[in-house]
Design a binder for these strands. Structure first.
Lengths: 415, 415
DNA sequence: ATAATTAGTTCAGCCTGAGAATTAAAAAAT
DNA sequence: ATTTTTTAATTCTCAGGCTGAACTAATTAT
């Protein structure tokens, strides 16, 4: 704007507009309906704080479009005209979610109401691959899932794709991933072109947060963090019921927050990262010392960790101290998240919660102790083991919300 | 909503609505105009991405209301009909900003366009006081500033009030402050009742961020953090051009993020807080050791720190190491902010930047080193010494934005 | 003078949604 | 059985916010 009179540049206040989002009533109504499962018009009007007249108009529009339908629902007898239940027409279409890992890719298909239709798993290459090779696997997996569901690609209208690494969700580009040989891979466009369907991508931690927001403990929360500990340490954050991806939209790097000056060496090259104390590889390298194993006799990292865990359970001092230390540093990381974001809930989530030393009461108590001093109420911390499909479900939720935005949002993307 | 049919609770997706904010065009136009200082209708239409017709209508409305006026502005000759410059009518009203500290309270008065009219300072009690006593001082200070400006309270329409501590901006309550003897002090309502004007309150770190957003380096940024090091360590954060105050709206506690497991004792009672390494009191207690002073011979904390600083400058090894260590821990804290929020800019700001060891290139380089590994572009870090009035100016910006919201926003607060 | 160019206005109209009155369908009261 | 009460849903009118298209206004270029 500074076109006109630079001499008069005496203004004040932010030069850039606030990011503002308008959700038309039809979208809010639809999303409320899907969230509730089924609901009457009167309930919707109360819930959305709008007039019954608007609900009638909007729901008629949605019913005409075939997205919503009336159903007969059992109800308790009560005074007054009985409400008519509305529900999302699950049969409208379906979407898929695919999660890529270096172990096994997973996929799920859900219908328009969010209900699970089918799932599939495909053993994947354990090493870095090109994007092309990875996406070939993803395509095969998607077709497997479709076959299980008795569907074809034409039955789908969106696919969500998740991958570990630094992912630019908005641009659809993977800046870096432990799975891919190339950097700045245009994953979204490439996969979309390959399967002939619109695609949305995100990183694994955000998928987990999305899964919690759509299917789990986060459904009733507006602000929560989801922390996951696997090969690395990831975090997805929901603020004001929306994914927060940081200033540049690349997601947060809880695993690389520093919990120790000049601390343990992280695979990122820095020292003192949280990851360098609690991620798998951090435990593995100490396990080798504790159990007096060489790399050769140790077998796979996974086996080594299992041994370490068993030893710790059996009372092995050194083994136990590894988990203890990891737990204490995890507490520091979670405390820092609390001090900076002040979420109402921290969910520690993932496919499996193998090492319960990390999620012991002592760890949670330490988080409380580290944060209790500043006067605010400490967040609750929950542990959630979901099984391997949780990421794929999160990816499916990603697809479903993108589809809904396209169908009902203000910004129509090509139709 | 779960009124209807619990049996059908098969829904998915977030149950709570996204926090959505609608800013009517008249408000966006007005704020753009104030930000630009002066602008033509045509420029505004381009800037706001709306039709010229709307700009004509809205600006006519604002001119009628007396909030905006046309001015003659010098312009370069160019083809076409010459634009007519619009500007905010600065004379409409004024607002004040007041900042309370345990050293000296400060106040500024700015006009409706944000231009400074007057400022004043009042020596304050160096000890904790009741809210009533503090507000009596604040009231006296406000009247001093008004007298300097040749104005009366009736000339003001809003007052912003800032105080260190845990402040619930939305509720107008100070949960805890180093200045007040009581907890959960209803500062906003009490001061509003005392001076007969609407009041908005916030904590000092947020005021600083607001000052940067309105008057400083943050004006052209949508995402940035402002860090301040004084008696404690505070942070204000702007995300998407809006203040972010954490999940509970109480602000962030950068000073109590942990940078060392079982580290230095913080005045909050925990160990390893950033504050316990870089805040004034942390330097003081080490200075006593380094300079072999007793409490008695040391004089005030301020003098002690000055001595420490001079000694360090002169090459005193122990004194230097105190600043060095503080700087390194500060780098850890800033690196963590970067990993978690990924702001485009971190501004280290405050009234005075006394100890340039803390803001040395070595510190900034360490932040870069600690964050460079994760692939994203590290934020720029700027140092900004503003002088004592910066907080009061931030408080005035707070008042001005609250006033604007009331005048032009959708949510009319009582008329 | 005339054309070209840019600024700003007028006016009809669309879209979203609200309010009030009305109709619909059930249980409770008589 | 009829009436009243209660709650649900619809219809209709209308207002606010904004747009597009056509128009007027004021300047420079030719």
């Amino acid at each position: 704007m500074p076109d006109l009179i630079d001499a008069l540049q005496t203004g004040c206040g932010p030069l850039l507009p606030v990011v503002t989002e308008t959700r038309p009533l039809r979208q809010r109504l639809f999303e409320s309906l899907r969230a509730a499962g089924a609901s009457s018009r009167a309930d919707l009007a109360r819930w959305l704080d709008c007039s019954p007249a608007s609900v009638t108009a909007v729901s008629a529009e949605l019913i005409d479009a075939g997205l919503v339908k009336e159903i007969d629902a059992p109800r308790e007898p009560s005074r007054g005209r009985p409400p008519v239940a509305l529900t999302v027409n699950a049969a409208v279409t379906a979407v898929a979610g695919v999660k890529l890992t270096d172990d096994a890719h997973t996929a799920v298909i859900i219908d328009f109401s969010g209900a699970l239709i089918a799932q599939a798993t495909l053993q994947s290459a354990a090493h870095r691959q090109t994007m092309a090779a990875t996406l070939t696997e993803a395509e095969a997996l998607l077709d497997m899932a479709l076959a299980k569901a008795g569907m074809t690609r034409a039955s789908l209208s969106w696919v969500g794709l998740g991958i570990a690494g630094v992912v630019d969700h908005a641009a659809g580009i993977v800046l870096w991933s432990p799975l891919l040989t190339e950097r700045n891979a245009p994953l979204r466009e490439t996969f979309a072109a390959a399967i002939g369907l619109p695609v949305t991508i995100d990183n694994d931690a955000n998928l987990l947060a999305l899964a919690e927001l759509w299917f789990g403990a986060g459904r009733g929360m507006t602000d929560f963090a989801v922390v996951t500990i696997e090969n690395g340490v990831g975090m997805g954050l929901v603020l004001g019921n929306r994914m927060f991806r940081g200033g540049s939209g690349l997601g947060m790097e809880l695993g690389h927050t520093k919990v120790q000056l000049d601390g343990a060496l992280c695979r990122c090259g820095s020292r003192g990262c949280l990851e360098a104390y609690v991620a798998d590889y951090a435990l593995v390298r100490e396990a080798q010392t504790a159990l007096h194993f060489n790399r050769d006799e140790a077998g796979s990292a996974r086996e080594l960790l299992e041994t370490l865990y068993d030893e710790a359970k059996a009372g092995h001092k050194a083994a136990l101290s590894i988990f203890r230390r990891a737990g204490r540093y995890l507490a520091v990381g979670l405390a820092n998240v609390t001090e900076l974001f002040d979420p109402h809930l921290i969910i520690i989530s993932g496919g499996e919660m193998r090492f319960d030393f990390l999620y012991a009461d002592a760890v949670l108590a330490e988080v409380q102790a580290l944060t209790a001093q500043t006067g605010r109420t400490a967040p609750k911390i929950e542990i959630n083991a979901w099984g391997d499909m949780v990421w794929a479900r999160g990816a499916a939720a990603l697809a479903l919300s993108a589809l809904t935005e396209q169908l009902l949002g203000t910004e129509r993307v090509g139709g």
